[in-house]
Every structure is written in C-alpha cells, then in structure tokens.
Design a protein around this nucleic acid. Structure first.
Length: 400
DNA sequence: AGGTATTCACATGAAACTATTCTCTGAGTTAGG
DNA sequence: TAACTCAGAGAATAGTTTCATGTGAATACCTGT
C-alpha cells in the first residue's frame, strides 16, 4: 500500500515530456487543417446552398484512411451548424459513422439513430423496418428544413446490407413536401461506387471530391505543428519526425498512423524515464503499434475466429504456407479436444477470408492445378508477436 | 511436341435455419377504494 | 377498478448450415508427325 503510494507520488513529481497529450489523440480536432484548403473550399461551395435552404448536390468524398476526410467534413459541419444556429436557419447537418457496431451499421439502426437525432426515441429492436421509415418521414417532414446527412465509411454499410437504403434515401426527396435532404458519403474505398446500383451511383455522386494522400513533406509539416503543441520544447530529437513521416508515407500517407506513432514513441520514452524522444523510441513504437493493432483485432473477434487463428498459429512453426484443408484439420482436432462445436469448412473458408481482410493473416487464392484450388495462407508477423498472440489466445479460449 | 479434356480441392453464392435480443400486447393477478 | 406482472408474439440480427455452382492450372490423354 505504502509502496504503491510512493510510486504514484514519484509519478506525479516526475515531469512529463508532454505538454498536452490529447493533441496526439485521434479525437483531437485542430482548428486549422493543413494542406486541405482546396478540398474544404470545394466541399463548402457545394454544401453552402443548404444555408439558403436550397438542397445542395449530393456529394461523395473518396480518399484513403488518414487523409483528413472525416476531419475536414466535421470541420465544415461544425461551422455550418453554428452559423445555422446563430441565424436560426432550419438547417441541420448530421454525422453518422456507419462502421460503428450497434450504432449505424444496419438499415434499421441507421434509421433509428436518425430518429434519435431528431429527438424521438425509438426502440432499438422490435419494430418493423417500414414503421421506422414512416416515423422518419414524418419527423423529417414535420417542418421546413434542410438536412445534410453525412455517412462516414459508407462502404461498410453497403457491403453489409446492400445499397437499397441509399436508394431509398436518395429518393426520399420526391416524397417530402417541406424538407429536403442531401447526402454526403465518405468512403475510403476508391472503387466503392463501381459495384453500386447505377441509379444510386448517379444520384449519389452528383459531385465528387478526392482526398489525395499526404506526401512525406506534408506529413512532416503537420507532425511538427502538432509536436510543438503536444511536447515540451526540444524533447523530440532530430530525425524522429522525419523518420515518422517516412514510415507513414510508406503506408499510403496515413497521417493518423503517423500521429499515433509519435504519441506512442513519447509514451515509451516517458515510461523508460527518458526526457527525450529518440529514433530508437520511434522504432520501438512502430513495433508496438503494429503488434497492438493485431492483438486487439484478434481479441475483438468471436470465439470461432480465435480458434481458427489459433490453429494457424499452431501450424506456423512447422512451415511457412498452409492451405485451407490443413487448417481445417487442425481446427477440428482443437475443437473436439476442447468441446467446442465444429463448424463446417464452408464457414471456415469465410472466416479465413475475414481474417485476411483484417490483416491478421495473408491469404492468396492459388491453383495447384491438378491438386485443386485453395487459399494459400501465411503469417507476416514477427515471431515475438506470434508468441504473444498465442498466449493471448490460449488465455481467452482457455486451451493449451 | 502440341492441343484438349479432366480433375482436384476448394472458392463463392444464395437461401434457409437457429438462437438471441428486444419490444409490445393482453390476459391474469394484486392491491386499494 | 386501476396498477402490475409476466408469458407469448413479432421483429431484427448474428452466426451458421445446406445446397449449388464456379474455377485455374497441373496432369492425363489424344493426335498427328
């Protein structure tokens, strides 16, 4: 008790190398967005008519992860919403992230979330979907107003439940008497719209804006700006920012990743009692971020996913590549030994495909000619991560 | 040698089924007047 | 009689099974030289 107390006291006394760590968290909203002036201006031009209660064109925004899409759109949203409020214009922009589980990832939940935005609480389940639709209609049409609906990660939505809901939303305007609705879709999949119903595609992407990736120099600039605010002076050593930017630029210019890396480097440096952030800290952070990402992705999965992954990890020391059938055999023995119910190979095939998408494994479909067609699966993880991952899975599945 | 047909071992797709979660409804029950 | 309880119906959803169909290229099998 006493000892832990002194630990905390020491912790308090030790001065931090951070001034304001929250600046390096992904939730942080800078009030100035660098290198995105053009895109913001364009988007603002397209959306501005909403303030005059005219319906803006539907807008589609593309760009890879960490290119500032969400940030820019939220920026516009905040300023337009506050202008609307001060001038009491009946215009409202609503932001929804379609990826969030249990919030807006199905047709029903999306609509019920929208109803909640209008201040009407609806049950989270139990109602027929058309009833939710009609509630939404009446709420929307209750008074004259313009609604700008921002759907972030819209590709997740359509992948899961198809594009019918988008079609309905784009058509809704024809049936509304008082209100107008405009849809802003954000996607980090550049070819997303190609497998969309042509009707949806043409009406949804009346306007399009593309967010290009940041290049290494821009990332450096942004990092410097954030560093200046987040860290104390002269804490971050020469070369750290440059290398951090290089790492991120390699990963298609993902600024979020760069900022993450910088923060973790700082945390690692601080934890080791150092007063400066070195390149070595950065390298360590790179490894830690990578392994944390994989491990947390693995933990978040259902039991069967973990079992399949565990089967792969058991196979891994023996050889570099393996096929669906081999994994299925191991998986079956694990299940019977531990009294899990055994799923069909069909399902395992899907699970493997999903693990691949999560980036936990690498799967490639190859044909072995006479000997069939299958997934060739490999792990691209470092050994330390595999060991750690295995321990974690053993604990969570209670197997050995 | 060159061409084609087979064939393997899964992949991929669609539909249907199961279990769970949640609401609403209405019958039965209880407590108070 | 009003308030309360609780089982059952209806709906959405996640996870799965069943059945059906697709597929890329190494081999087997021809064919004609």
């Amino acid at each position: 008790m006493l000892r832990i107390g002194t630990f905390f006291e020491n912790f308090l006394k030790k001065d931090s190398i951070f001034v304001e760590k929250s600046i390096l968290l992904s939730a942080y909203m800078p009030n100035e967005i660098m290198y995105r002036e053009d895109q913001i201006k364009e988007a603002a031009n397209i959306l501005a008519p909403a303030l005059r209660l005219e319906r803006p064109s539907n807008l589609f925004i593309y760009g890879k992860t960490g290119t500032g899409k969400t940030l820019s759109v939220k920026h516009i949203m905040n300023s337009m919403n506050s202008i609307a409020e001060t001038n009491s214009i009946p215009m409202n922009m609503i932001y929804l992230n379609c990826k969030l589980k249990r919030v807006a990832d199905t047709e029903y939940r999306l609509l019920s979330q929208l109803c909640k935005e209008f201040g009407r609480d609806v049950p989270s389940t139990g109602l027929p979907t058309d009833e939710i639709y009609s509630i939404f209609y009446t709420l929307l049409d209750a008074k004259k107003q313009v609604i700008v609906l921002i759907l972030d990660e819209i590709d997740h939505l359509t992948k899961k439940i198809g594009d019918e809901i988008l079609y309905n939303l784009t058509r809704i305007n024809a049936e509304l008497k008082n209100s107008q609705i405009c849809i802003v879709g954000i996607s980090n999949n550049l070819i997303f719209s190609e497998n969309l119903d042509p009707r949806v595609k043409s009406s949804l992407s009346e306007e399009e804006i593309i967010f290009p990736p940041y290049n290494a120099l821009q990332i450096q600039d942004i990092l410097r700006k954030r560093t200046a605010k987040a860290f104390k002076e002269n804490v971050v050593q020469m070369g750290v920012i440059e290398k951090c930017a290089a790492y991120a630029a390699r990963e298609h210019g993902d600024i979020r990743r760069a900022i993450d890396l910088l923060r973790v480097s700082g945390e690692l440096a601080e934890r080791s009692g150092s007063l400066v952030v070195t390149v070595a800290n950065l390298d360590e952070a790179e490894r830690k971020v990578e392994s944390d990402k994989i491990i947390s992705a693995a933990i978040g999965q259902p039991k069967q996913f973990q079992t399949v992954l565990y089967a792969i990890l058991l196979l891994f020391p023996q050889k570099k590549h393996f096929f669906t059938g081999e994994i299925y055999e191991i998986y079956k023995t694990i299940c019977t030994k531990n009294n899990f119910n055994v799923l069909t190979q069909r399902r395992i095939s899907d699970i493997l495909a999903e693990l691949d998408m999560l980036g936990i494994i690498n799967a490639k479909i190859i044909s072995k000619g006479r000997y069939g067609r299958t997934r060739e699966i490999s792990l691209s993880l470092e050994e330390t991560i595999t060991i750690k991952l295995r321990e974690v899975l053993e604990k969570s599945l209670r197997v050995s």
